[in-house]
Amino acid sequence: MMTDTTGGGFLERDGASGGSGLASALCAGTMMGQLPASDALSILVQKHLPPPSRPVRDLSGSWHATLDTSDVDADQVLEAASTNSWRKIAVLARSTLERAGMELDEVVEWWTVRLYALARLRLYSMLRTELASVPEVLEGQEMPFGLLVLRATEAKFRGDTRSAVEQYTVLIRMCRERGGEVWRSRAIRVGMMLAFALAEARDYNAAIELLDPLVERLLSDEEGEGVQLVIVAARVWIQAGDLARALELIERAEQILPSESAVHAHIKQAKMVIATINGDFADGDGEAEGVVGALNRAVVQFYRAQLDAAIATLDAQLEAQPALVASADAVVFNTATLYELAAGDEAAVVGRKRQLLATIARWAAEPGPSSSAFKL
């Protein structure tokens, strides 16, 4: 069973100095590709659902009745990001850049937004092409830190973990040489990304050796900033099988966080995972609400051999909060898996999974769950 966890990604933007010539060059529409007219979810819909059952998916990237994005404000962009409407953001960034008339700092900022949106859309080939074009124009200028981080992460997207590790290491060295609180904070975050890359390559010893001093520093911060990263980092100890250390870190982080922090839901999730691995299926976290709480209960019910109850829990959550569930890979994957395990012939299982696909396609923004989540 998959479990829902939070990831630790970030992009920070620096200023860039230079003349209007560079800004104009970066605003050329020829530097940016057209987004594909379909996504992985719409391809699945066309393959597995008959025409009358196919929900309409808006892949235009438009914000209003037209493609005019000139009146989109910052609050709308934040709302779009919170609902995974990354195609809208990618389209907005391109249209803003093509209007030109901006200083170089602002142009680079919008380029960062554009490239990050491509990464979230999983359009890695387009990301690589556009990301490579920016340094060519900025030759002689210092690359903004956010773009340097994204360039290192792009290597991981295409499976070149070794290059990503090397580039993260260079960035950490740069941060340490610059000094100052901002650069120390950046060093910690890039160090986290490096550790996660090592963990993905199953080099847990190296990942933990790197993470240990980082999490201790985060836990010693009196203001508690970055404590949520400790919860994310605890996953590496869980994957490595050191559940005692993972639980220790989680409990220390819990003591630091204010009671109203939303991170407590993820703490409960992590504790439930550890309890389940230890064979303690009693901790179902019945008080947790929303998608995380439903997933907790379903996982515990599954390990208690209460298959029908687990399916009912996830189905109820899908009905109650379809937009949130539609973007949660773990919930979609677990629901499809439970359908396969439930009693019934193959036709019934396929029918339930097709209905799941139709519901998710109706509610999911881009990129939506990965195609493998549906197991079709």
Rank of each mutant, 00 (worst) to 15 (best):
D14E: 13
A37Y: 03
Q34C: 01
A16N: 04
L11S: 04
G33L: 04
M32N: 07
T30L: 05
S38Q: 05
G18V: 00
G15A: 11
A23S: 08
G18I: 02
L22Y: 07
L41C: 09
L11K: 09
D14T: 10
S20Y: 13
A37P: 05
R13Q: 15
A28G: 07
A16T: 10
G8M: 02
G8T: 04
G8W: 06
G33E: 11
D14S: 12
S17N: 14
G21W: 11
S17H: 13
G21F: 00
D39E: 06
A37W: 04
G21E: 13
G21Q: 10
A37K: 01
G8Q: 15
G29M: 03
G9R: 15
Q34H: 07
S38M: 03
M31A: 05
A37L: 11
S20C: 06
F10S: 05
L22C: 10
A16C: 09
R13Y: 12
S24V: 01
I43N: 07
C27Q: 10
T30N: 12
A23E: 04
G33P: 01
F10A: 10
A40Y: 00
G33N: 07
S20M: 15
A25T: 09
M31L: 08
C27Y: 08
G29F: 03
Q34R: 09
A37T: 13
G9F: 10
G19E: 09
M32F: 14
L22V: 11
R13E: 12
L22W: 12
L11V: 13
R13L: 13
L11P: 06
S17E: 15
G18N: 06
S24F: 01
T30M: 09
G21P: 02
S24T: 15
L35T: 01
S42K: 03
G8K: 02
Q34W: 07
R13I: 14
F10H: 15
G33Y: 04
G9N: 08
C27V: 10
G29S: 04
G18Y: 08
T30W: 12
I43H: 02
G15P: 12
T30C: 12
S24W: 00
G9T: 10
S38D: 05
D39C: 03
R13S: 12
T30D: 15
L35H: 00
L35D: 02
S38P: 03
M32E: 08
S24Y: 02
S24E: 14
L22N: 10
G15K: 08
G21H: 02
E12P: 01
L41P: 06
I43E: 15
S24A: 15
G18K: 05
G9H: 11
A37S: 09
A37N: 02
M32K: 11
G8H: 04
L11T: 15
S17Y: 07
G8Y: 06
Q34G: 03
G18M: 08
G33R: 06
G19W: 01
L41T: 08
A16L: 07
C27P: 11
S42D: 10
L11M: 07
A16R: 01
S24L: 02
